[in-house]
Design a protein around this nucleic acid. Structure first.
Lengths: 177, 177
DNA sequence: ACCATACATGTCGACACTGACATGTCGAGA
DNA sequence: TCTCGACATGTCAGTGTCGACATGTATGGT
C-alpha cells in the first residue's frame, strides 16, 4: 500500500502527529499524488508502529501523539523509493479519465468541456506561479526540496491547459484528408 | 464510482464484450487514467445491465456477450462528463507520490532517482512520438478523437522528463543565499 | 491427435478506503 | 463564564478493488 510509504516519507521529513499528517494530505500532496483521510491515517499509523517502522516519540496536549520514523522505517522507505523505477505504478485520475472518454461526446460538448478545463488549469497555474514569486523571496529555505513538487504541479497545469487548447483546435479544424 | 462511467464511455464508442473492455484497460487508459481488471469489469457490467444503462445486444463464440450502452446510459455518461468540472477529483498516482517524497532521500539518491525518471519518461515519449508519426499516415481516421488521448500522454511524458532534468539541476546547484 | 495459447466469463475471500458517527480538549473572544 | 471553533483521535459499516481460483472454447502449430 502506498499510504504506508506516504506516511513514512512525511515522517522522515519531520516527526509529526496524525492530525498534522492529515492536513498534509489536504494540500498539494492530496491534490496531485495521493489522498487519504484521517480515518485511514490513524489506523495505518498504529499498524506501522506495530511493525516497528515508526514510533511515538512524544505525547502532547489534547491526546496528540507525535510519531517519528525508525531506522527500519527509513530503510523500508528508501527501498520503496529507489526500487524498480516503474513496473506498473498504480494510477487513478478521474480528470484524465474524462479526457479519455471525450470521444463519447459530440463535438460541441467536447469543446465546451475542453474550454472549461483549459480555463481552470490555466487559473491553477497562475495561482501556483503567484505563490512561487512570493515564496521565492520570503523563504530562502533550508533546501530547494519541496519547491520541486510545487514546480511539478505548475508544469502539469500548464501542460494540461495547453493540451486542451490544442485539442479544441483539432476538433474545430476537421482537416480530413 | 468512476469505473461505471469508464465502461459507459468505452461502450459508447463501440459496443464490445467484457473481454475487449478488459484489454482496453491494459492500454493507455489503464496507464494514465484508470485501471481495472476483469474481476471488477464483469460484475460491474452485470450491475449496469441491471440498472438498464447497458444491454447485451449479441452473444458470440465462446460465450462472449457484446454489450451496448442504452439511451439511459448515454444520458448518465453525458451528465457525468459535463457535470461540475472538478470539485475534488479523485487522484492517485504512485509515481507522483515518489516525487513528493523525494525530500526523504539524501541528495545523491534523489538525483539517481530523478535521472532514472527523466530517462524512462523521455523514452516513453519517444515511443509515443514514433507511433504518432506512423499512424499519422496510415490511419486518416474517421475522427481526430482518440489521438487526443495519445497526445495527452506524450505531453505528460515530455513534461515530467523536462521537470526531472530541471530538478536535478536544482539539487546540484544549491544556490543558497 | 495433441498441446499450447488466446479467447471469454465468472466467483470469492482478503484487504483498502470512505463517510458517518463518537468523543474529548484547549484557547480565544463575547 | 460560556460558547464556539480548531485541535486531536478513534471506530465501524458499507463499498470498492485485487489476486487466486475455476471453468470452458476455438485456433493454429507440430
Amino acid at each position: 500500500m502506498s499510504l504506508t510509504h506516504a506516511l513514512l516519507g512525511l515522517l522522515a521529513t519531520r516527526p509529526q502527529s496524525g492530525y498534522e499528517l492529515t492536513k498534509a494530505f489536504e494540500g498539494d500532496l492530496g491534490r496531485y499524488a495521493w489522498q487519504a483521510g484521517h480515518t485511514s491515517i490513524y489506523p495505518e499509523l498504529a499498524k506501522l508502529a506495530e511493525r516497528g517502522l515508526v514510533e511515538v516519540t512524544a505525547e502532547g496536549a489534547r491526546g496528540s501523539k507525535t510519531y517519528d520514523v525508525t531506522d527500519a522505517g527509513r530503510a523500508e522507505l528508501r527501498d520503496w523509493l529507489m526500487s524498480p523505477p516503474s513496473r506498473q505504478a498504480k494510477v487513478r485520475n478521474e480528470q484524465v479519465l474524462r479526457m479519455f472518454l471525450l470521444s463519447a461526446l459530440d463535438r460541441d460538448d467536447a469543446v465546451t468541456l475542453l474550454r472549461r478545463i483549459a480555463a481552470s488549469t490555466a487559473e491553477q497555474a497562475d495561482v501556483l506561479r503567484a505563490i512561487r514569486e512570493e515564496a521565492g523571496d520570503v523563504v530562502p529555505g533550508p533546501a530547494g526540496f519541496g519547491q520541486l513538487a510545487a514546480e511539478y504541479g505548475l508544469r502539469q497545469y500548464e501542460t494540461v491547459s495547453s493540451w486542451a487548447l490544442w485539442a479544441i483546435e483539432q476538433l474545430q479544424t476537421p482537416a480530413r484528408t
